[in-house]
């Protein structure tokens, strides 16, 4: 199947600041993709280029087989832009009807579509109010809802849950998953726990480069690492006792603010045997724990991958690779 978004050696600079460099990405259809990376990694720039707000500096982009500014893409791509505001003083429903009409819907269809979009984010009762009279969270939900107007094949969501409370965040996640059927959704977010739940694959950007793009299951699959979050920082006796277990390869302790043990185990031994042995030591030492997890979270993996990339970048003797 043809990729929904295809970039080849994509680069973009703003003056001396390089926002993207050499990004080669192929987003498959009908998937929810997470776009992650630290601030300034180039996520919003990539979204802006795919949406046609910005022109690529170098390289090329194809969206649904067309150039981002092609009239063929009108209404087929939609975006929840970061920091964009709806018109003040005009009711949200009127604005949504306008968007729907621009996408080619008749006035009647536009009205129904606007109501449907607002209903999906629980804002129907605020339909006749302007965005200025809504709370931040409501405005965010309204902006999110406009991205679902019509029947876009590709939806780009830039920080859809930023500033939202946990209950609304969960609703947004469910909505995204519901809407993902038969279309591609790309989500840029710092809420990696949400992305881990919602996304099929994750693309990691760092310093404008694509450093990884794999299915979430591959990135955070069960590994030889076991993380035990403790109530108190582990003492030397506990650490020594765990270290002495034949199934354990190494132990790293967390700091005072984050009491935990990161235990690397022998991968050839049965998981349950290892778990029981470690828990046995905890019982003997009367150590109290809060959480035991096999494998690392997406957040930890992203931090690890980003740090590795940074280390490679700093040790790379070839200056041309830093362009």
């Amino acid at each position: 199947m043809n990729p929904v978004v295809e970039t080849k050696d994509l680069g973009k600079a703003f003056g001396a600041t390089v926002a993207l460099k050499g990004v080669n990405l192929e987003i498959p259809p009908d998937q929810v993709i997470g776009l992650v990376g630290p601030n300034g990694a180039g996520k919003t720039t990539l979204f802006s280029i795919v949406s046609g707000f910005l022109k690529p500096g170098v390289g090329s982009v194809r969206v649904l087989g067309h150039s981002p500014l092609s009239p063929e893409l009108q209404g087929r791509v939609s975006i929840l832009p970061q920091d964009a505001s709806l018109r003040r003083g005009v009711s949200i429903i009127k604005q949504f009807e306008f968007f729907a009409k621009l996408q080619g819907l008749s006035p009647k269809e536009a009205s129904a579509e606007a109501e449907k979009a607002l209903g999906e984010v629980d804002l129907l009762e605020k339909a006749d109010e302007g965005p200025d009279s809504l709370s931040h969270g409501m405005r965010k939900r309204a902006s999110l809802a406009q991205a679902f107007i019509g029947n876009p094949e590709l939806i780009l969501l830039d920080e859809p849950t930023a500033g939202l409370d946990p209950v609304t965040t969960q609703k947004v996640r469910k909505l995204v998953l519901r809407k993902a059927e038969g279309r591609t959704i790309i989500i840029s977010s710092h809420n990696l726990a949400e992305l881990q739940e919602a996304c099929d694959s994750v693309a990691i950007l760092n310093l404008g480069k694509l450093v990884d793009f794999r299915p979430v299951s591959e990135i955070v699959g069960r590994s030889k690492t076991m993380i035990i979050r403790l109530e108190n920082p582990p003492d030397d006796q506990l650490t020594k006792a765990v270290c002495e277990l034949p199934q354990v390869v190494s132990v790293n302790s967390g700091d005072r603010g984050n009491p935990r043990m990161i235990i690397t185990v022998d991968g050839s031994i049965d998981d349950s045997e290892v778990d029981l042995a470690i828990l046995g030591v905890f019982k003997e030492q009367k150590a109290r724990y809060r959480e035991i997890r096999r494998g690392e979270s997406l957040e930890e993996k992203v931090v690890q991958i980003t740090n590795e990339d940074l280390a490679n970048e700093n040790s790379d003797p070839d200056p041309s690779s830093k362009q």
């Binding site: 964009a84 505001s85 709806l86």
Partner: peptide, 13 residues
């Protein structure tokens, strides 16, 4: 300036 056009340019020429 306020980026409102970002809502329009993906829908309209």
């Amino acid at each position: 300036g306020n980026r409102y056009f970002r809502y329009l340019v993906t829908r309209c020429g």
